[in-house]
């Protein structure tokens, strides 16, 4: 057992967990943040993607001890109150989701993707960058559209700030 201290969605949290606990289970089982999902056991599907210190990471690959002291953003922490993050809004507006299970991981990956490419994305790049996130419902067509749309919206939002 270890005591893990994290900042999650801007709030300091502390939890006692077995050393073998994965970050995704800490988030879901200990902190009740069930928006982060588990879709596979092999770090392939990306449903568990969160931001650790600003970078998209599959939270099923991280032991809680490795995350100790870090700043974590989950899907629940992405919107500002009732105002959706541009990526969330773009997924809704472009029908970028169906069953919704992969969606939180997709959105967290996509936000990081837009940041890393400074918003300069094309279809081929988005498709390549989404390799680590599996969706079974959409055929990715509308996810790609959503990410490209959001890249534009995020640029506008950044310019406004």
């Amino acid at each position: 057992m270890s005591t893990i201290k994290l900042t999650v969605n801007g709030k300091a949290v502390s939890a006692d967990a077995e050393d073998r606990t994965l970050l995704v289970h800490l988030l879901r089982d200990h902190l009740g943040l069930t928006g982060t999902h588990v879709g596979c056991d092999t770090s392939q599907c990306g449903a568990c993607t969160v931001h650790i210190d600003g970078r998209a990471v599959k939270s099923c690959t991280v032991l809680v001890g490795q995350a100790n002291g870090s700043k974590i953003t989950t899907i629940e922490g992405l919107s500002k109150g009732d105002e959706l993050h541009p990526m969330q809004a773009a997924f809704r507006d472009n029908h970028g989701l169906q069953c919704g299970y992969c969606t939180p991981g997709m959105i967290m990956s996509a936000v990081d993707m837009v940041h890393r490419h400074s918003g300069k994305l094309d279809e081929a790049t988005v498709r390549q960058e989404l390799e680590g996130n599996i969706c079974r419902c959409t055929g990715y067509h509308n996810i790609v559209k959503s990410v490209l749309d959001a890249a534009g919206r995020m640029k506008v939002a950044n310019a406004a700030e």
């Binding site: 899907i75 629940e76 959706l84 989701l97 299970y101």
Partner: peptide
Amino acid sequence: ARKEDKRFVTGKGKYVDD
């Protein structure tokens, strides 16, 4: 636009394991 999407894009969907 889908009425159900707000809960899904904000992580508020409620699946069985939740």
